[in-house]
Design a protein around this nucleic acid. Structure first.
Lengths: 344, 344
DNA sequence: CGCGGGTGTGTTACCGCTAACACTCGATAC
DNA sequence: GTATCGAGTGTTAGCGGTAACACACCCGCG
């Protein structure tokens, strides 16, 4: 229960402003502003009176007004896919976290499909809101095209592993992750490794596929045809059923954990044992991966770090000194039973 | 490539304002405002000139200024847990979706733990930003306490299945979902059903537990001791290992799909077959649930609908007519193999 | 003793927009 | 022929802050 001194203000309808506080404290609104911002000299006694009035009135600075006056909203926009894919969602929270610590607020604009127009719209929306910078989490080639025509007046950072983006990018090194996964499979003695890729148009799809293909080429392993899913467990399952008919499928690198789950399911239904008959590696290390049947070897992406790094990068853009180039977070291979020793 | 007419404006540094457009078009800023807002009479010819100037200058209304002038920011705040639990994240996107359609922007303030102080802080932060309404997605009793001391000047809706909240709530009927799950298990002929609950303090935990307990009581089934996890697959796994030592565990209702996954894993490691030896029901219907081993019978929550409903409710609060009471979304039981016919 | 230079405070003018009202027309009504 | 009206436009005064400068006042200094 809050104890209120006598001076509880009349319920004016709208929240108290600097002027109201100033009146209460018997000073000018400018003095109140100085107290609130801790800037400029104010006598201790005056400060006390002002703080008192603030407390009594329940004053809360209005960041709209402040933003308007200073030209700095201390707000950021994030364009995110509204799917609940683990990676993008985690990244969003990583960004929000870092932003809050730095005193920035975060506005989200979600897009249901990574199309050029919807992304442009989202960016447009955020700009209206006066955000100081924008993060686009839409690892899709359409996003890349959208960014080309995006306004250059507002700092913009993309979370996507690509080198061609016309804006600064931050990403987990997808190709490296894919390389590690594939190398791991080949190191187990398999002649080659199959790949269940993500859908066309996604930058991750391409990078992971490239990493996989590069390792096969280096080792002289014959590249099997690429199978293509849509990130969903369902697609992994369907593709898994197709795989059953093929010869010599001993090792499969799947472009994300969810599809890998579908694959595991298809294999298990067909009585094929993992890792004994087939070895499987996923990508992402979702929290569930360690409890799949069997626990899934996968490539961990540190999305929280990614989010924080992204915010840091954007902040530097906002502040003007923007060291160009990509910021890369290294992935990590997590080995579990799905690639366990043969016969164990 | 955008074709620019001769009048490309000098790069003034700051974005063009109403006044700039007005000057270009040779009208008063007020006329421009009318054109932009489609309000008030403007001659067709004038409108054309203004639209032209807007186009040429790349004018973009500043919602900060608009918000300040009108007192309506057309922004909403969402307080969300920064964990990537499937439910809360989906709900957030559902809200964002509905909000965008209605012309509202969404600011998120995440809290890392559902503690009273952090929630109060988050709400405070959002209020500073001038949001017109706030959604709290923090189904925790601490959130309930936070809401008690929350300011009543700004409309606030909570997403939580509770009847005691001092604010309007929107929720999926957790108790009903738990009832259906439990009834389903008993209908299969088991003497009783065990329950792996969520962590203390969560409203869902309580409601699901109550639903489960109520059904047991009605059927005269002996209630086994409640086992308590923390939503993570890991905790489900640990508890699963404990369960192996117990007698007569034939049916388990798990409070979320992730823990159910952990349980499935523990059972499978111990050679206990699902559904033959043990039947398992989860809660949430995450996209992966259909591909667990075996596919998981679970209670589906339509989070997207929940988000939309929440936004609608908040909007009515903002507009003043707030029909009191709870808004409830019904859950749905999805039957899969984990409760399949015995012996099949 | 006058003067420079801090320290503490107030004044004024914006920031970009909208609300409210004032004004100028031409058309219509009486 | 003048009062009345509505359409179309402009003027002014805010919204709640901050920036920039003005103004006391008090200190130490040459």
């Amino acid at each position: 229960m809050v104890k209120r001194s006598e001076g509880t203000p009349e319920p004016t309808g709208r929240p108290p402003s600097l002027a109201d506080v100033a009146a209460q404290a018997g000073v000018s609104h400018m003095t109140v502003s100085r107290v609130v911002n801790g800037a400029g000299p104010v006598r201790a006694e005056t400060r006390r009176r002002v703080l008192d009035a603030i407390d009594r009135l329940g004053y809360r600075p209005n960041s709209l007004a402040r933003g308007l006056a200073t030209g700095r909203s201390r707000a950021l926009g994030v364009v995110a896919l509204d799917s609940v894919l683990y990676g993008p969602a985690s990244t969003l929270f990583g960004i929000e976290n870092a932003a809050r610590e730095a005193g920035y607020s975060v506005s989200v604009a979600s897009v249901s499909a990574p199309e050029r127009t919807s992304i442009v719209d989202a960016v447009e929306n955020l700009r209206r809101q006066g955000v100081e910078g924008i993060v686009v989490i839409a690892p899709h080639v359409a996003a890349g095209r959208a960014l080309e025509i995006a306004p250059r007046e507002v700092p913009l950072v993309a979370v996507a592993d690509t080198e061609e983006a016309p804006v600064p990018v931050v990403a987990v090194d997808q190709r490296d992750g894919a390389r590690r996964a594939t190398e791991h499979l080949l190191a187990l003695g398999h002649r080659t490794a199959w790949h269940i890729a993500g859908p066309h148009g996604w930058l991750e799809t391409r990078a992971r596929e490239q990493g996989w293909r590069a390792v096969l080429a280096e080792r002289g392993a014959p590249p099997p045809p690429v199978l293509r899913g849509d990130w969903s467990p369902r697609s992994g399952y369907e593709i898994g059923k197709e795989l059953l008919d093929r010869e010599g499928v001993e090792a499969v690198f799947v472009a994300n954990d969810q599809m890998a789950l579908g694959l595991l399911r298809a294999l298990s239904e067909a009585g094929r044992r993992v890792p004994d008959d087939v070895r499987v590696v996923g990508f992402d290390d979702v929290p569930e991966a360690a409890y799949y049947s069997p626990p899934l070897t996968t490539v961990r992406q540190d999305f929280l770090a990614l989010g924080r790094l992204t915010f840091g990068r954007l902040l530097r853009c906002i502040e003007g000194d923007d060291p160009p180039g990509r910021s890369i977070v290294p992935p990590e291979l997590i080995v579990r039973e799905s690639t366990g020793m043969r016969g164990r």
